[in-house]
């Protein structure tokens, strides 16, 4: 097992390098570019000084040279500085990370918690009105575009009846609150974004849990459990449930990239001070080092999430033991 984890950790390196190569290429080949998009509108900047700027940032060098330079700094955990405000990229990313992690972890928890409950109850009452209603409800969540729903809900609950904050993660007077009030304030800001992400993600998990629960309830080992005279609750919520939750662990690992990727647009709408918004802002200004920093971090988190999912799978399913 230890060897397996080590192997998987080492495997992250080539994948990460691959991802950075592709991102680097896409970002630098995009028409526009840092110097032009930031300076061209400014009449006071002469073409001459634009050239000098390019040289200063090393943007005149061939692409592969720029990449290797970036990689060489990256392996020493040096992500460079932002072109826009000259602050270290690592600082900028790390200060945005908690907000993204908070939103994603809370959303994932809600999605899995509700998804499992809906999936299991639908499996137990399949074809009932409840089951059909839940199918419809979760599919609406699945089909409605998150950004659209976000705008509608913001309009209703933050503008028309202002019971929830429009955006952001804290109120403007956050600094003057006590610790307890601060926690409540953050939770209050989390309601809308978490609701929207959860609503969109529920269908996926609940359908999955429902079908795997139905499957384990019809397996021979469930019939055998009844034949043993075990209490029905134990058969359903222990014996059958454990079997049907195994695939859900894999699902958890697979849904991480979607959530982190989805944050790009989502965090922008909600002015959520997370990595997604940072990536969006840096993309709009062609701030190459920050773009690379956020993408690398997102890729790393995704790969780590997959690894954790695989390891937990191995821990709960006795049939799988990695070597």
């Amino acid at each position: 097992m230890k060897q397996y984890i080590l192997k998987r950790l080492l495997l992250i390196i080539p994948v990460l390098i691959g991802i950075t190569v592709i991102t680097f290429a896409i970002v630098h080949l995009t028409p526009g570019g840092f110097v032009r998009s930031n300076m061209e509108m400014n009449v006071k900047v002469s073409p001459d000084s634009m050239e000098r700027l390019k040289v200063l940032y090393g943007l005149d060098r061939p692409l592969y040279e720029q990449y290797f330079k970036w990689l060489w700094r990256f392996v020493r955990f040096d992500f460079g500085e932002s072109f826009i405000d000259n602050r270290p990229v690592l600082d900028k990313v790390l200060e945005r990370l908690p907000a993204t992690l908070l939103l994603n972890i809370v959303s994932l928890t809600v999605i899995f918690f509700l998804g499992i409950i809906i999936g299991v109850t639908s499996a137990l009452k399949r074809n009932s009105f409840y089951d059909r209603f839940m199918t419809l409800f979760t599919f609406i969540g699945y089909s409605v575009p998150a950004f659209w729903l976000a705008l509608i809900l913001m309009m209703v609950f933050a503008v028309k009846w202002p019971i929830l904050p429009v955006s952001g993660i804290t109120s403007f007077n956050f600094d003057m609150m006590s610790a307890g009030e601060q926690a409540l304030d953050v939770m209050w800001h989390l309601i809308l974004p978490v609701f929207i992400t959860a609503f969109g993600g529920l269908a996926y998990i609940s359908r999955y849990v429902k079908s795997s629960m139905i499957e384990s309830l019809t397996q021979q080992y469930t019939i055998a459990a009844y034949a043993k005279g075990l209490p029905e609750n134990r058969i359903i919520y222990k014996n059958a449930l454990k079997n049907s939750l195994l695939p859900v662990i894999t699902l958890l690992g697979l849904s991480l990239p979607g959530l982190i990727g989805g944050s790009f647009i989502f965090e922008t709408i909600f002015a959520w001070p997370g990595m997604g918004r940072l990536a969006y802002e840096s993309a709009m200004t062609f701030d190459y080092p920050v773009i690379m920093g956020t993408v690398t971090m997102a890729a790393f988190l995704t790969l780590l999430g997959n690894l954790i999912a695989d390891i937990s799978y191995a821990l709960v399913d006795p049939r799988i033991r990695y070597r």
Partner: peptide, 19 residues
């Protein structure tokens, strides 16, 4: 079940819970 009458089935591999 299990107290007055115990049952064994055709396919023991499928009758035991794998996890």
């Amino acid at each position: 079940r299990g107290v007055k009458a115990g049952t064994i089935f055709q396919d023991p591999a499928a009758s035991l819970n794998p996890v």
